[in-house]
Amino acid sequence: MAALDLFRSQRDLFVNLTLRELRGKYKRSVLGWAWSLLNPLATMVIFSVVFRYFLKIDVPVGDPSGLHVFAFYLLCALLPWNLLANGMTGGMGALLGNANLIKKVFFPRSLLVGANTASLSVSLLIELGVLAAALLVAGNMVLPWLPAVLAVVAVQALFVLGVALLLAVTAVYFRDLEHLVGIVLQLWFYATPIIYPASFAIDALRDKPLLRWLYEANPMTRFASIYRDLLYHLRGPELVDVAAVVGWTVVVLGIGAFTFHRLEPRLAEEL
């Protein structure tokens, strides 16, 4: 509840910081906002060529939607993945990049991390909006599922916030954290069914229960599955997936907020 009060009293600052991130990001480029769409688009083209045409990965047919397009299957998981990846990278820089501000002005420092996650979430919403429009054109009637997508984005944003809070303060104490996180992100990316269907991995890990259990425990696997159910298959998500992501979010946000709260008072000295 303390967090809610904080948000209420600092809403204007939070909004301003988020706008700063959003406006500042593409300010100096000719294409401006278009970059935020071009990036996933380029990744989509590359992955489609490599994995669909070279490696011949086949994706399931949408059930009940009947959609059978690798690019859509990919984007439904790739866009949410980008929120996590950018949220982690941006989270590490949220405090370090604002050292001067933290040393000179008092305000709740968690807002810097929150604004970073929030601005990336807004980007994700825009990207998902474009994806939804493309899906509509392709004949996938996603409109009834969009409110549920919004709810999932909200949960995922909180999950990413938890991770980012933890990384933000840790990065202040260990400046080489970004190298480690780069490796973790790469590993995590391939351990999540983004460029391939989850069934590939689960089949391959059939006789290795521990690895399989780990694979299924991966919260991003669950998020990917939910996004695909809603946008690609046009069906309600599995309850076990929903329970898993909500559980993960509560735990990760709890750890992140606790760690941040513990280390926050000494930030001005350590930076």
């Binding site: 204007d12 301003n16 002005v105 305000f107």
Partner: peptide, 29 residues
């Protein structure tokens, strides 16, 4: 606190946007 002036200004943003941003940082709605 007037410890450093213009802390938190974003160089790419206009003076107008920065006034709102800086004001918010200093606790104004």
């Amino acid at each position: 606190a007037l410890l450093e002036l213009g802390a938190g200004f974003h160089p790419e943003l206009s003076g107008r946007d920065n006034v709102f941003l800086n004001g918010a940082i200093l606790g104004l709605s």
